[in-house]
Amino acid sequence: MPLDTSTYHLAHLRLDGRRWNELRRFHALLSTQASADGSSYLESGNSKVICTVTGPSEQRRSGAPASNAQRDSAQIIVDISLAGFSGVDRRKTARGSKDRKVMEMQHCVEECFGGVVLGHLYPHSVVQVNVAVLSQDGGVLAACINAVGLALVDAGVPMMGYVAAVTVGSTGTGGGSGGEGEDADDPVLDLNGLEENELPFLTLATVGGGGDGGGDAGEGDKVNVLVMETRMQMAKLESMVAVGLEGCKRVRALLDAAVKGHGKKVLEGKVG
């Protein structure tokens, strides 16, 4: 079913009633599982993700001698599994053979956190991250990154700052649905599943540098992940990234609120 983007220009409201720069409902919980070192549950619209972290723990001995990089800093191993019931149609993926898309996502998350986690504090150790995607409705990679960040915070793994991820799409001619002039190409923030199928989009993650760690990380923001699998005009990229940076800032504030809310709850539990 093709997405009808033509009405967007009339009211500037999207299919689910949001404006171009509005995020979906964002709900995050920390410490959802008692047996893991760190765990989190994240809902972004209808995308739902559970993440558990084990470690940092001792590296398992394998046959090959550890490389220098493995010896000097903690290794992050990410395992993402898309549940069979997560999509619209049930799809079974055999565990032995993960499909390419999931492998790429795993690699992307590993790379993303490899630079953010202060791994040199934990030489010879492994941080095992398991992500279970329970429901996918757009922005799965972004949801995974946000959830992994929260779970690492819960596990007490030191990081340079929050990693906040968001998707940005571009309406208008990119999908070939008929252009209405240059100003018709608006970037839209945080796509849902329907929009993601139709529009060219990118996933952007930034790591907050310095600042108070909260909503206003300002100058220190660094782009950490930029993934794009669809084609679009080069000229649009800049405005999309600009919108994405703004979105990441908002997501970071939400992540921070979730962590602080959890901390408050823990503190209240300890005190009284």
């Binding site: 959802t32 008692a34 047996s35 893991a36 209808n46 739902k48 019931f85 429901s135 409705d137």
Partner: peptide, 16 residues
Amino acid sequence: ILPSANGSARICFIDG
């Protein structure tokens, strides 16, 4: 708990 499934449930035991 899941909008995309016909039925769903989650249980946590006390041992985690």
